[in-house]
Structure formats: C-alpha cells, structure tokens
C-alpha cells in the first residue's frame, strides 16, 4: 500500500486561507488505511481549519468529500464534480497519484496536495508503517532472503552491509533495522549465507524512476475505441 502522512497544518492552512471556498477531498483506499487521508482525517482537517480560521480571524468556507479512490476516473462522479466546481480550490488528501489525477481531471481548478506520499509499505502493527518496496521495476527481493536492499538499506547497497551496521541497526537511524543485518541473519538461518559471496553486479535502474515516467500496457485489457464508455 502507499503510505503517506498529512502535511503540516500550517502549510495547509496557508494554502486554504488564500481562497474563499476550499474543498477537502479524501481518498478511501491506501491513505485511509494508513490514516492520512480518509474520511476521518478529512473531518479532522475540516475541524482544524475551521478552528484556526476563527482563531486567526480569516474568513473562508471549508467543505468535505471523500471518494473511494482518486486514481480512477469513475470515482470522480457527478456529486464530486459538483462539489469541486463549487469550490475555489481543492486540497486532496490522496497520495501524489490522486493529487495529479484530480488536477488532470479539473485543469481549471487549483489543486493542492494535503499529504506527503512517503513510501510503499506495510502496517507493521497498528499505528506503525514501514517502507518495504521502492518500486524499482525489477524485483530482486528473492536474492536477498525476501528483504529488499533497495528499499530498506539507506544506501541501497547491493553488496552490503556497509561498516555502519551496528547491533543490527542502521547507522542513519538507530531505530531502523539494518536491512543487511536482516539479510545476513535470514540467509544464515536458511543456510544460504555463502550465496552472498557472489558479487551482485550494478543494477539495471532503467526499469526504475530513472527510466522516466513508466507505463504498463496490457493490450488485451484495453477497450477498443468503440466500446469505451463515455465519461
């Protein structure tokens, strides 16, 4: 899942207070699960903006709306469009994808990002999320006992660990597990530690972000022009 966290309130307030009518648009999928941009967060921000505008003597109107996903066209239904049209600006609490998708759909509207999209991750326990994938386009996790060095090593070392691994923790942050310490531990348990003596050659990053905006096309799934629904 995409994991995000809400932007600092003051940032959002500065954006909202520039307009007369602001719509807070929540997203009901990933950002709901990671408690950054679901209906509850939308309502909290709504309350916060109302309280702050009263405190600071600004006058703007805030409305709210949450849709299932902001990365699919059909969820921007009539009601959503109407609410967006009625507002001067939209703060969307969806991930970066949603923010862009919304901007593309309503080019005339000022659309602000309400959250910082941080990573692809997992709920380790309730209230704690951790990065697990960097979306590099070429999965090598299975070479490393199921632990991704690209996403989970601060230096993305493919032949780690570096000298900074200490007591199983990363030198960059003592709360963070050293991915390579985990890899070594797991491979030792699996009895495959010696596999690490093979040099992992420089990675092909062209499948990653470095290859430019990526697209995935499934020709078999695409609808013909004639069968596309209007909308």
């Amino acid at each position: 899942m995409i994991v995000a966290e809400r932007k600092l309130f003051d940032d959002l307030y500065a954006k909202a207070s520039k307009h007369k009518k602001v719509l807070l648009l929540g997203c009901g999928t990933c950002v709901t699960v990671c408690m950054a941009g679901g209906e509850k967060e939308v309502d909290i921000l709504d309350s916060q903006l109302k309280l702050a505008s009263r405190e600071r003597g600004d006058d703007f109107e805030v409305t709210t709306h949450t849709i299932v996903r902001q990365c699919d066209d059909e969820f921007f239904d009539e009601e959503t469009s109407r609410k967006i049209a009625a507002a001067d600006a939209v703060i969307t609490l969806a991930c970066g994808v949603g923010v862009q998708f919304c901007s593309e759909k309503y080019p005339e509207k000022r659309v602000y990002a309400g959250v910082n999209t941080v990573f692809y991750g997992a709920t380790v326990e309730q209230g704690l999320w951790e990065e697990r994938c960097a979306g590099c386009g070429e999965c090598i996790v299975d070479q490393f006992a199921g632990i991704c060095p690209v996403a989970r090593c601060a230096k993305s070392l493919m032949n780690g660990p570096c000298g900074g691994s200490s007591n199983g923790k990363c030198e960059v942050d003592k709360e963070t597990d050293c991915a390579w310490a985990l890899i070594v531990k797991r491979m030792k348990e699996l009895g495959t530690l010696e596999e690490l003596s093979e040099i992992t050659l420089p990675k092909d990053w062209s499948t990653s972000r470095d290859g430019g905006p990526r697209r995935i096309v499934h020709e078999s799934l695409r609808l013909d022009e004639g069968t596309k629904k209007e909308g």
Partner: peptide
C-alpha cells in the same frame, strides 16, 4: 461502501 478493510477495528 466506506470500509477500506484497513483492519483497524479488527485490531482494536
């Protein structure tokens, strides 16, 4: 219709 199956309730 609103549930994102986030499991929060299950855990709580």
């Amino acid at each position: 219709d609103k549930c994102a199956t986030c499991l929060t309730c299950v855990r709580e």
